[in-house]
Simulated scan of single mutants.
Amino acid sequence: MRFGILSPVVFRPPGQFSAWETGAGPDELVQVAEAADRLGYHHLTCSEHVGVPARIAARANGTYWDPLATLGFVAARTTDIRLATHVLVLGYHHPLEIAKRYGTLDRLSGGRVVLGLGVGSLKEEFALLGADFDGRGAAADDAIRALRAAWGQPLPEYEGTHYRFRDFLIDPHATRRRVPLWIGGYTRRSLRRAVELGDAWVPFGLPIEQITTMLAAVDRPEGFDVILTPPPLDPIEDPGGARRHVEQLHAAGATMMNIVLRHRSAEHCVEQLAAFRQLFAQAEWPAGTAR
């Protein structure tokens, strides 16, 4: 089992963020990121939305820091922790745009980028950006294949159903030929997409029982990850509850988790990260961490 964190400050869904995050900024983000890096957490995340309709933001979440800018900033202040988009909306980007921009970040960060990808669900945002909403599923599948072909290539070539390219120099580009692709979603199609085209499935908004049933219906490739998110945990005040939630998700099929912690400040978040690390000391932590 490996553990990453849903980064505080940059993404504030109801029920999963603390009041102090509303007024927090780069200093607090870096404080938490540096601690997670030092303690050996696998990854931190940053999600994407260009603009959230006001009617949704008023009752849900409207805060989404730009992932490329944010992860680039965090990359300069960390050394080992992976930098995961969670998730990029494929319909908002050309595959070569992702390969160029995040390939540059991958080079700058020493090969630490993880691309979480999704098809998107906000019809108004698609319209705002002039993107095709109704055909987004088929386009996303082709975009993933195109991205596989383009990643780490100076002169990529691809001929697909929606994307075609050749004879374009992409420089700089990633120095490695393969990047982990985590596919987000909550449908059976998202799971099939992950199994067929990706390296991991990152479901959201689903009960554990449904996740277990869906996973049982597919044959997962060797090394395929299932990344689940427990409810906010308090390893200092309720270590037993934290352990129960993690064990429950592990039993459901999780090989990795995005954890959210209860905290009152950036300093308290760092304390919680350390307490969680100690509580699960036998998990898969990189050697030499907790420095």
Rank of each mutant, 00 (worst) to 15 (best):
H43W: 15
H43F: 15
H43I: 02
H43A: 12
H43G: 02
L44H: 13
L44C: 07
L44R: 07
T45V: 06
T45I: 03
T45S: 15
C46E: 05
S47V: 08
E48N: 01
H49S: 05
H49A: 07
H49G: 06
H49W: 04
H49R: 15
V50I: 10
V50E: 01
G51H: 12
G51S: 15
G51I: 06
G51C: 10
G51A: 09
G51R: 14
G51T: 04
G51L: 12
V52G: 05
V52M: 13
V52Y: 06
V52W: 07
P53S: 14
P53D: 05
P53L: 06
A54E: 09
R55L: 05
I56A: 09
I56D: 09
I56M: 06
I56E: 14
I56K: 12
A57I: 04
A57C: 05
A57F: 10
A57Y: 07
A57L: 00
A58V: 03
R59C: 09
R59W: 02
R59P: 08
R59K: 11
A60Q: 13
A60N: 08
A60P: 00
A60G: 06
A60H: 10
N61W: 01
N61L: 09
G62H: 03
G62F: 00
G62R: 04
G62N: 00
G62D: 03
T63V: 15
T63I: 09
T63F: 07
T63A: 08
T63L: 12
Y64R: 03
W65G: 02
W65M: 04
W65R: 04
D66N: 15
P67S: 03
P67I: 05
P67A: 00
A69S: 07
A69N: 09
T70N: 02
T70D: 03
L71S: 04
L71A: 01
L71E: 01
L71H: 00
L71W: 02
L71D: 03
G72W: 06
G72D: 08
G72P: 01
G72L: 11
F73W: 11
F73Y: 07
F73N: 07
V74S: 02
V74L: 09
V74F: 00
V74T: 05
A75I: 09
A75N: 04
A75H: 02
A75D: 06
A75M: 02
A75W: 04
A76D: 06
A76Q: 15
R77N: 00
R77V: 05
R77T: 04
T79Q: 13
T79K: 12
D80M: 10
D80I: 04
D80V: 06
I81C: 14
I81R: 10
R82G: 10
R82T: 07
R82D: 14
R82N: 10
R82V: 14
L83D: 08
L83K: 02
L83Y: 13
L83V: 12
L83C: 03
L83P: 13
L83M: 14
A84Q: 03
A84G: 01
A84P: 13
A84T: 09
A84D: 00
T85G: 05
T85H: 07
H86V: 14
H86L: 12
H86E: 12
V87W: 09
L88D: 08
L88M: 14
V89F: 01
V89G: 03
V89L: 10
L90I: 13
L90F: 09
L90Q: 14
Y92I: 15
